[in-house]
């Protein structure tokens, strides 16, 4: 074909692949860094974007946490209202008796996965080479752990509240509904924060997540058994109950819901006052946070 002056040659089409280039667009700053680390941690712990085997444990725990709630919602729908009111259905505080094991299993799975893995794989060094620093890294990990635990501490009772309300067996009136809702949120935070801090403190002590997971799962029932034996069998001071890690937040939840009297709670109210329980709870949170910070502040990130 003859070329015509001024015409576009027939083979002049080109594909411009820009590929890697400099970037001068907007940046999300520190908040963006925090958001992406929390999101990534949540996805990682839940096994999202990972192969099926990483989804098994979180899925199983979520099922164990929600299954009793689903069963009680079904019972409430099927049983006559007076039977449901006769104590066949658990209270919002009492519901944790069914799922506390699943909650501390989840805490033992999540916190070591989020903390130990970063140290063991050297990813902590990559994180700390980003705009995050040690406090913000730990804050992000704590937020992620708490959000994951709220999935199993807040989700089921909230589901029950909504379902009971729809079935007309929930709180009477808007004000009472809001009051119950607030108590459920506070209760889930009390349990979620305590388990998160304990599990993170254990995870800060070792780089091996299997060891940390085993330690968290053993510490929870272990502390309950030891303190129960000491107080109930050896008749030692009932203040030792404050070292019962899984039951301290559970007892506080009974008090938050006003169920400490009438034999519904775990401990006799006269043994330890509500203020003592709150002080112990804050003590656990402060000690745990202090220990985690002490470990990370001095942690040598060599690689």
């Amino acid at each position: 074909m003859a070329n015509v002056p001024g015409a576009v040659p027939p083979n002049s089409a080109q594909i411009f692949d820009q590929g890697y280039r400099r970037y001068d667009g907007p940046r999300t700053g520190f908040r963006g860094s925090m958001r992406t680390m929390v999101t990534h941690s949540l996805r990682h712990a839940l096994g999202l974007g990972r192969s099926a085997r990483f989804k098994i444990i979180p899925a199983a725990v979520v099922i164990f946490a929600y299954l009793p709630a689903a069963a009680f919602i079904g019972m409430a729908a099927l049983l006559p209202e007076d039977l449901a009111a006769e104590g066949l259905l658990p209270t919002y505080a009492g519901y944790y008796s069914y799922i506390v094991g699943a909650i501390y299993l989840f805490a033992g799975f999540v916190a070591p996965l989020l903390l130990c893995t970063d140290r063991r794989t050297g990813l902590l060094g990559v994180y700390l080479a980003s705009p995050l620093n040690r406090p913000s890294y730990l804050l992000g990990k704590a937020l992620a752990t708490l959000i994951l635990l709220l999935l199993v501490t807040l989700g089921p009772p909230l589901l029950m509240l909504i379902a009971f309300t729809l079935e007309s067996t929930g709180p009477d009136g808007f004000v009472e509904w809001i009051e119950v809702f607030a108590k459920i949120v506070l209760s889930s935070l009390v349990m979620g924060a305590m388990f998160a801090v304990v599990a993170m403190a254990v995870s800060a002590a070792t780089d091996r997540w299997v060891v940390a997971t085993a330690a968290v799962i053993l510490i929870m029932p272990g502390s309950a058994i030891v303190t129960d034996v000491l107080v109930n069998e050896a008749d030692l001071n009932s203040a030792l109950r404050l070292f019962n890690i899984p039951n301290l937040p559970r007892e506080l939840i009974f008090r938050i819901h006003g169920e400490a009297t009438g034999g519904a709670s775990l401990w006799r109210p006269q043994e330890n006052s509500t203020w003592t329980l709150w002080a112990a709870w804050f003590g656990y949170i402060a000690t745990g946070v202090g220990f985690i910070w002490a470990r990370y502040r001095k942690l040598l990130v060599r690689r």
Partner: peptide, 10 residues
Amino acid sequence: RHIAELHGLP
């Protein structure tokens, strides 16, 4: 992608 987002990229 995660590390790029950590450094502030949308």
